[in-house]
Amino acid sequence: MKKKLLSGNPVLLLFLGAAPALASSTSVTSALGMGIAVIGVLLCSALVLGLLRNLIPEEAKLSAAVIVVAGFASMAQLLLHAFLPSAYAMLVFYAAVLGVDLMLFGSAENAMDAGLGKGLVNALVSGLCFLVFVLILAAIRELFGAGSFAGKAVDGLKDIKIALLCQPSGGLFVFGILLAVVNKLFPSTDGAGALTSASAFLESEQKEAEA
C-alpha cells in the first residue's frame, strides 16, 4: 500500500491526473475538495462499469469508460456547486477538467478488465493516491508560496514566502522536486529509470488484473 501510494502513485509515476492535481493544489482546501470529487467519480465509475462489464462489447469499452466518467464528473460538479459552494468557487474550471482526466479513464478501464471487487479497490486506491499527492503538493505550495495553511496565515512563514510557488511554473517545480524525492527514497528494485519503472508498473498492473 505504501509503495502504491508513493512510488507506485499513478500521478507521480505515469503523470496521470497531473493537470487537475497541479491546477487545484494552490490551496489545501481546494486540493481536498478536488481529491474527494476524484474519489467519488472513480468509485461510481468503477461500480457502474464493473457491473456492466459483461454487457459492454470489447470494441466499445473505451468509449463506455469516457461516457461514464464524463457523466459522473458532471454530476460531481453539480453536487459540489449545490452542497459545497465555497469549495466549488475555488475549483470551478478545475472541476470541469475532471471530465477529461486520464487517470479516471484508466481506472474505469481497469474496472472493466479486473471485475467489480478488484475494480472498486483499485479505484479507491487510485483516488487515495491522487488525494495524498495533491494534499502534499498543496501543503508545500500554500505554506511556502502563500504563507498560510487551509486559508489561515502561519506566523513566520508570511515573511519568507515565495510567491512563484503559487504560480503554474511553481507548481511544476514542486512537482519535479517531489518526483525526485520519491524516486530517491523508493527506487525501483532493478535500479532502472522512470520510464522503465513505468512500463514495469503497467505490466504488473495488467498481470494483477488478469489474475
Binding site: 466499445a60 461516457i67 457523466g71 453536487l79 456547486h81
Partner: peptide, 26 residues
C-alpha cells in the same frame, strides 16, 4: 458494431438522465 453503438447510446441515455435528475435536484 450495431451492438456497440446501441450499448453506448443506452449508456449515454441513462447517464444523461442521471445528470438531468441530479440537475433537477441541485
Amino acid at each position: 458494431v450495431l451492438r456497440s453503438v446501441l450499448c453506448l447510446l443506452l449508456l449515454l441515455a441513462v447517464l444523461a438522465a442521471g445528470v438531468y435528475g441530479i440537475n433537477g435536484f441541485t
